[in-house]
Design a protein around this nucleic acid. Structure first.
Length: 678
DNA sequence: TCAAACAGGGCG
DNA sequence: GCCCTGTTTGAT
């Protein structure tokens, strides 16, 4: 092998700890981002070139160099910036590079097959000169407040290396109108904009407004409803620069866009931005990194910013601006706490809540009852012997679904027929406990027989078009009762909805999860934002058995920001994020909890060395849901005031993990900046 | 006595 | 993740 021979460092979609080195045909080089076919053991697999370099004989563990088998692409798929971002993410999230790279590609590009010639044409760079695409003047002029806000952001964004902007705008304050006007001048000048939304199916209004505002300007949507082919096509249109606006959910943050000029993260607090399996990245954080690497502006929009984001704004790392007015709307809704303790509840509602619903309907308006729990009842039990229906595969109760007459596990999806009698004592009279949306719908229907009750949750909207039909019914503005889960919390505009009743928030007030209160606050504000959007004042009733909770009073009396400040104080005292950093090591075993705990105990011991000082270990402990889908689950939490130390510890761990005996009987993973501890 | 089941390790 | 290898297990 001659001295100047070139080799390629290749990422392969397997959980390998590093890139693999392959030789290139003599005198040939390959640009980063080009896919190849390479031999891996006995297989031929797809691999992506990350870099090429001159070959140097490895000094330590020598390996036989194999040649690449074939080249699949003429042009790189991810651009250089995107590859850099992905490599950064590999190091930050301590996830195998090949899995990170290929997770960022459309499924159609993950196989060792070349692009069809039709698709290859889409890869050619589009004309990048400014095109005079007519952007129609909006029929809605900006309010004074919006105008000022837009001006400020535009000024900030002119900076060479602009800071991220937190746009804290209450529900209905018109954040979308700001996004549109920030995007317009840039896309007509030939640049691209990337807009990340929590769930595209749930934000049809945002999409509609974009289409209406930008008319014929090329816009692509990346969401879960697309087929592999459609997704690839949209992706390639973004890659060529032809698509000027890219709207998508979390994974769209990896869309290549050579002329990218702005990123918008709408609902930046939304937890769906964090991937919860495999490569556990946070879409918002990677977006901020991407914008920073490119030196382009990024806007984070929310009515209820994440505590991390608010803190960054407070600390001066982000610009901060508010929108406090609802154009064309009346007062912010009146918030009330209803103590549930003194009353016998009917349909889970206090007499005052029922009365409020009755009055709302009598006025010809709509009421919504929000309950974040599907099914008829969360538990089925035997009053004689105490038996409870629990899942065979998980350590949780099964939920009883009345219409389907089935027990369903909401963790693993297992279903079974409702037993006719108690399996242990044969008592034929089994009882339910608690209520879900299905029961709520039925009881409300019998309480208010003359009005329609519309239930919106995953069970009633699984078929295509069902959600749209139900939303259309509600927008018909006839007086009715809307029942639903958190599907109802975001994005929908119901002009005749003037009352919102929120049930079952007690578990969040009492939770041991330090993020539970933040999420509750965000949920309450978002749900409350559904009430009274048009000309009618809204009212929100919170039912709870903890009516004296001081943080709840803070939220209701003073609003989200002081509430969040208070939570941040608590986080500071306990060195929780953003004042300390965390990584969660999870392990699971099909054999026993002991196996999972033992593995994590070994991991913990590995980390006792002096070179990982400044990292605290909590656990190992069984996970809150101890068993799920036949796996016993345990976790070990690593925390540190300094992020660098946490990363050193994780690197050390990944290096040494191979020496842990019994590791093959457990599945384990690293979650950097965890938000879900279940 | 043999092969199916299982654990461990490497893949360039 | 997949595939190869060496070892255990237990069925005939």
């Amino acid at each position: 092998m001659n001295q100047n021979h070139l080799v390629a460092q290749i990422a392969i979609p397997r959980p390998l700890p590093s890139l693999l080195t392959y030789s290139l045909p003599d005198g040939q080089t390959l640009a980063p981002g080009i896919r190849t076919v390479v031999p891996l053991g006995k297989q031929q697999v797809v691999g992506m070139v990350i870099k090429t370099e001159t070959w140097e004989e490895p000094t330590d563990n020598a390996f036989a160099l194999k040649p690449i088998t074939a080249t699949l692409d003429q042009l790189p798929l991810p651009d250089t910036h995107l590859l850099e971002l992905l490599q950064w993410a590999t190091r930050y999230y301590h996830h195998p590079p090949g899995e990170v790279i290929f997770n960022a590609l459309p499924v159609a590009l993950r196989k060792p097959k070349p692009l069809s010639s039709r698709m290859q044409k889409l890869l050619l760079p589009a004309a990048q000169k400014p095109t005079a695409i007519a952007v129609p003047e909006s029929v809605f002029p900006l309010t004074n407040e919006q105008e000022q806000c837009l001006l400020s952001i535009q000024q900030w964004n002119q900076h060479k290396k602009p800071y991220p902007v937190l746009l804290h705008g209450i529900t209905g304050s018109g954040k979308t109108e700001i996004y549109l006007r920030l995007i317009a001048p840039l896309v007509t000048a030939g640049q691209q904009a990337l807009v990340i939304v929590p769930e595209i199916g749930l934000t049809p209004q945002l999409l509609l407004r974009f289409r209406q505002f930008f008319g014929t300007l090329p816009l692509v949507c990346l969401h879960s409803g697309l087929s592999d082919g459609e997704r690839l096509q949209a992706w390639l249109q973004a890659r060529s620069g032809q698509a000027r606006i890219i709207i998508g959910t979390r994974s769209a943050i990896f869309t290549p866009a050579p002329q990218l000029g702005l990123i918008v993260i709408d609902e930046e607090h939304d937890t769906s931005l964090k991937q919860q399996e495999g490569f556990r990245y946070h879409g918002r954080d990677l977006a901020i990194k991407r914008a920073q690497m490119l030196g382009i502006p990024i806007i984070l929009g929310s009515a209820t910013p994440a505590l991390e984001t608010l803190y960054n704004a407070q600390a001066g790392r982000f610009h901060y601006i508010r929108l406090n007015q609802r154009p064309g709307a009346t007062l912010t809704p009146e918030l009330q706490i209803q103590d549930t303790r003194p009353f016998e509840l009917q349909a889970g509602l206090t007499p005052a809540s029922l009365q409020a619903i009755r009055q709302t309907l009598a006025r010809g308006e709509q009421a919504m009852v929000f309950l974040n729990r599907r099914g008829f009842a969360p538990a089925l039990f035997c009053p004689a012997c105490g038996w409870q229906a629990s899942c065979k595969h998980c350590s949780v109760n099964m939920t009883w679904h009345a219409r389907r007459n089935k027990l369903v596990c909401h963790h693993c999806g297992a279903e079974q027929a409702t037993p006719a009698q108690c399996p242990t004592c044969h008592n034929p009279k089994l009882t339910t406990q608690g209520q879900g949306t299905e029961r709520l719908e039925l009881s409300l229907q019998s309480t208010f027989p003359e009005f329609q009750v519309v239930r919106i949750d995953r069970d009633t909207t699984s078929r295509k078009g069902e959600l749209e039909d139900k939303l259309a019914t509600v927008r018909g503005n006839e007086p009715l009762i809307l029942v639903g889960t958190q599907m109802l919390a975001k994005g929908h505009d119901f002009p005749n909805l003037t009352l919102v009743v929120i049930l079952d928030i007690d578990h969040s007030l009492l939770s041991t999860d330090y993020r539970a209160l933040e999420r509750l606050g965000q949920l309450l504000v978002q749900v409350a934002g559904r009430a009274g959007r048009a000309q009618k004042p809204g009212k929100v009733i919170l039912q709870t058995s903890q009516p004296d909770n001081p943080l709840l009073h803070q939220l209701i009396g003073h609003g989200y920001t002081p509430f969040a400040r208070q939570l941040l104080e608590d986080r500071k005292r306990w060195h929780f994020p953003p004042f300390g950093h965390q990584a969660l090591i999870r392990a699971s075993s099909t054999a026993s909890m002991e196996k999972a705990l033992q593995f994590l105990e070994r991991v913990s011991q590995l980390l006792t060395g002096t070179d990982v000082s400044g990292v605290q270990r909590l656990g190992p402990i069984p996970a809150p849901v101890e068993k799920r889908a036949n796996r016993y689950r345990a976790q070990l939490l690593l925390t540190s005031r300094q992020r660098a130390r946490l990363h050193t510890a994780l690197q050390h761990l990944l290096h040494a993990e191979g020496n842990i005996p019994g590791r093959s009987s457990v599945r384990w993973s690293v979650d950097v900046d965890p938000i879900d501890f279940s």
